[in-house]
Write a protein that binds this DNA or RNA. Sequence first.
DNA 1: TCCCGACTGTACCGCGAGTCCAGTTGACAC
DNA 2: GTGTCAACTGGACTCGCGGTACAGTCGGGA
Lengths: 203, 203
Amino acid sequence: MKEKIDTRTRILDIAEAAVLEKGFEATSIEEIVAGAEISRGGFFYHFKDKNALARAMLERYIEVENALYDDLFARARELNDDPLHCMLIGLKLLAEMLEEMPTGHPGCVIASTAYQDRLFDEGVRELNRQAILGWRKRFRGMFEDISEIYEPRESVNLDALGDMVSGVVEGGLVLQRALREHNNASEQIMLFRTYLKLLFAPR
Amino acid sequence: MKEKIDTRTRILDIAEAAVLEKGFEATSIEEIVAGAEISRGGFFYHFKDKNALARAMLERYIEVENALYDDLFARARELNDDPLHCMLIGLKLLAEMLEEMPTGHPGCVIASTAYQDRLFDEGVRELNRQAILGWRKRFRGMFEDISEIYEPRESVNLDALGDMVSGVVEGGLVLQRALREHNNASEQIMLFRTYLKLLFAPR
DNA sequence: TCCCGACTGTACCGCGAGTCCAGTTGACAC
DNA sequence: GTGTCAACTGGACTCGCGGTACAGTCGGGA
C-alpha cells in the first residue's frame, strides 16, 4: 500500500474542497474526518485545531497559485518576448483557465479568509497579507518592464496597478459566487486586459 | 421617552457594526443582546434566528448603498450634464468617500455573505444576487448613455463593464481588509476611472 | 524484540444557537 | 378600573461543534 496518499494531504484535499464550496465555518471537523475516513483523534493528531488547518490550507493554496502564475507567464514569455504582449497573453491564458473550470473557479481563499479574519490567528492573517504583497511585487515588476518601453497614456501608480490584477480577479470571483454565473471573473480579466492595451498603446 | 430608537433598529445597528468588524459567525447573539441591553428572549422576539438577522441586515445595507449611489450620481449630474463626465465625477466622489472613512470602509457585506453563503438560506443569497444585478443594470445604463456619444476605442460588453464597477469596489475592499491598508479601494476606483477615460476618449 | 509514529475510540467540557414558556410591564381601549 | 396586547424578561433546557485527554492498537523499521 505505497499508493495511499498520506493522511495529512488527504485531510487538506477534502477540507479544501469543502471550504471552497461552503466556507470555513460551515465545514465541520466531523465531515472532514468522515470524508478522509479517519477518526476525530486522527484529525487532531495532524492539526492542533481548526486554525492550524486553515493555516496549512492557505500555505498550500498560495504555493499552488504562485506556481500557476509562474507557469502561465513563463508560457506567455515563450510566445512573445515583449513585456506588454507577454502580459496580455498571460492574462488571456488566465482568463481561459478560469473559464475552463467547469463549475467555475472554486473561489479564492484569500477573500474568504479576509472576510472572516477574526476566526483566524495572526499567523493566518499575515500569510494572507504576504501573498497579496507578493502578487503586487510580481505584477508591479512586469508593469515596470512594460513602462520602460511603452510610455503610459495616463500616469498611474504601478503598485496600485499591480494590485488591480489581484483585485479584479478577487472581485470577479465575488461576483461569480454571488450571482451564480460562470464567466464573470474571466470577463473582468479580459476587460482589465483592454485597459492595459489602451494604457500602454503606442502613440 | 420618544427618543429611544426602537429595539429592532438598535439590534441591527449593533449587529452591523460587529459583523463588519469581525464577520457574521464571529458575532455572537450574546454580545448583540449585551450591546443592545436586551435579553436573549428579546432578540428572538424580533428575529426568529440568526439567519433572519442576516436577511434584515442585508436588506437595510442594500437600501443604504443604493441611496448612496443615487445621491452620488445625482450630485455628479448637477455638476456636469455629459454622461461620461458625470460618470467620472461620480467615481471621483465615490473614491473620496471611501478615502474619508477614517478606519477604511467597513467592507462590503456582499462579499462577506458570498463567501459564507452556506450559513444563509436561499432568501439571503437571492437578495445578494439581486443587489448586484441592480448595480449591473444601473451602471450598464450609464455606459449605454456614454456610448451613444463617445464611441469606445475597444468593443466591450457593457454588462461586464457595469459589473466592473462593483467588482473593482469589492476587490479593492478585499485587498484593503487583507492588507490592512487604507486606500486600496479608492485607488482601484481611480484606476478604473482612467480606464474609462481611455476607453471613451474622443478620437 | 522493542520502540515509535500514526492512528482509533471514548469520555468529557464549554460555548453558542435555538426552543419553550411562564411571567412582567406599560400603553391604550372601553 | 379592568382588560388586552405588544414588547419584552429570565430561566431552564437541548443540541451540535470545537477542543481536550488519554488509554489502547497496529504495522514497520533498528
